[in-house]
C-alpha cells in the first residue's frame, strides 16, 4: 500500500515533443485514480513514467516515501496491466501468473500457493494449464489481472485494460476490477480514453489535455462542475451543450435575442454557456426556441438533437415524455447553467 506523489514531473522526448507539461499531484493510499483524456494527451506517458518504462525528464516521483526516479521497474513494487495484456504466449496461465514471483526468487511451493489463490479470486482455476491462445478475451484479461494481483504490489497500473473487449464484457470487467481493487485496498492508477470508465470506476479523475491537467476531482465534481469547456465536452455522454452567448449582468443573450434567462452569476461580455442535456425541459411556454432535427430513441430516455439560434444543441427527455421533430420551446434550469470564458474556455 502506498501513496504516490508527482512533484513537478515533466516529459520531453528527444525529438523535442513535450508529452507531459509540468505536473504535480498526489494519489492517496488505497485510492483509485483514473487518468482520462483524448489520445495523445499524455496520459499513457504519465503512467509509463510511474511504471519506470519511460524516463522522467524533470521532477520527483515518490512511491510511498521512496524517490523512485532511477529505480528499475522491477524494483518499484508495482504491477501493470497492459492494453493488449502482454501475456507470454508460450507459457501456461499458471506460468504467466507466477513468472514475476519466480524472477524474484520466491520458492516454488509459495509460488504455487499464491497462483492458486489468485486464480481462485479471478475464477481461473480450471484454466491454469491452458495457454493464452486457448482463452477468450475476457479470460486473457483476467490472467493479466492475476499476474498483477499475485505479487501483492503497492501500486496497480492499468493502461486501457478494457479497450480490447466488447461492450458487454467491458461493463462486466469494469465492475470486477473495481471490486477487486476495493477488496485488496491497493492504490491504483488507471488510464483510459473512455469517460464512462472514468466516471464509474474512479475515486478521483484527472482529466488531461495536450500534456496538461485540465481538472482533478471526484466524478461528481467533474461532471457537474467542469473546470473548462474541454472537460465539459469530454466528460458525459451526450456531452454538455456549449452555446455562444452574451452576458449583460445576469441576463443572457443568445445571438442577439434577449431571452429571459437568468445566469447564476453576474458578468458582462461574451461567454460560453454550458448546460447538460438532462437539465433542459421541453415546455410550450418555454423561453427559448429550439428546432428539433432528429429524435433518438435510447430506451431509458430519448435524445432530441437540433439547434438553438443556429448552434447545435441536445435535450434529453424521459422515456415517456412526448417529443416530435420541428419547432418547440424549451426551458433551461437556471441553477444548472455553467458559464465559461469565451476566450480561454475556463470556468467563470
Amino acid at each position: 500500500m502506498a501513496q504516490v506523489s508527482l512533484e513537478g514531473i515533466r516529459k520531453v522526448y528527444p525529438n523535442g515533443f513535450r508529452a507531459v507539461q509540468t505536473t504535480s499531484f498526489t494519489i492517496q493510499d488505497g485510492e483509485f485514480v483514473v487518468l482520462v483524456g483524448p489520445s495523445g494527451c499524455g496520459k499513457s506517458t504519465l503512467l509509463r513514467m510511474i511504471a519506470g518504462l519511460e524516463e522522467i525528464t524533470e521532477g520527483v516521483l515518490k512511491i510511498g516515501d521512496r524517490v523512485v526516479n532511477d529505480v528499475d521497474p522491477a524494483d518499484r513494487d508495482i504491477a501493470m496491466v497492459f492494453q493488449n495484456y502482454a501475456l507470454y504466449p508460450h507459457m501456461t496461465v499458471r506460468k504467466n501468473i507466477g513468472y514475476g514471483l519466480k524472477n524474484r526468487g520466491t520458492p516454488a511451493a509459495a509460488i504455487d500457493a499464491k497462483v492458486q489463490d489468485a486464480a481462485r479470486m479471478l475464477n481461473l482455476t480450471e484454466y491454469l494449464d491452458r495457454k493464452p491462445a486457448q482463452l477468450s478475451g475476457g479470460q486473457r484479461q483476467r490472467v493479466a489481472m492475476g499476474r498483477a494481483v499475485v505479487r501483492d504490489p503497492a501500486l496497480f497500473l492499468f493502461d486501457e485494460p478494457l479497450s480490447n473487449l466488447d461492450a458487454k464484457l467491458r461493463n462486466q470487467m469494469r465492475i470486477e476490477i473495481k471490486a477487486l481493487q476495493r477488496r485488496l485496498g491497493t492504490t491504483a492508477v488507471y488510464v483510459t480514453h473512455d469517460q464512462v470508465e472514468a466516471m464509474t470506476m474512479a475515486d478521483r479523475i484527472i482529466v488531461l489535455n495536450e500534456g496538461r491537467i485540465e481538472q482533478i476531482g471526484t466524478p461528481s465534481e467533474i461532471y457537474h462542475n467542469p473546470a473548462s469547456t474541454f472537460v465539459a465536452s469530454f466528460m458525459g455522454a451526450p456531452p454538455m451543450n456549449l452555446i455562444k452567448a452574451e452576458l449583460d449582468q445576469q441576463s443572457v443573450r443568445i445571438n442577439g435575442c434577449r431571452d429571459l434567462i437568468h445566469a447564476p452569476q453576474s458578468f458582462d461580455g461574451p461567454v460560453t454557456l454550458g448546460i447538460r442535456p438532462e437539465d433542459v425541459e421541453v415546455d410550450e411556454q418555454g423561453l427559448v426556441s429550439f428546432h428539433v432535427d432528429i429524435l433518438e430513441e435510447l430506451g431509458a430516455h430519448r435524445l432530441l438533437h437540433g439547434r438553438i439560434a443556429n448552434q447545435p444543441f441536445s435535450v434529453m427527455l424521459g422515456k415517456d415524455d412526448a417529443a416530435q421533430v420541428g419547432e418547440t420551446k424549451i426551458n433551461l434550469k437556471p441553477e444548472a447553467l455553467r458559464l465559461f470564458d469565451r476566450e480561454t474556455g475556463l470556468r467563470l
Partner: peptide
C-alpha cells in the same frame, strides 16, 4: 508490451 511486462516481472 511483452518486454515491458517482463521488465516489471523482474526479468
Amino acid at each position: 508490451e511483452l518486454a515491458e511486462a517482463a521488465r516489471i516481472d523482474g526479468a
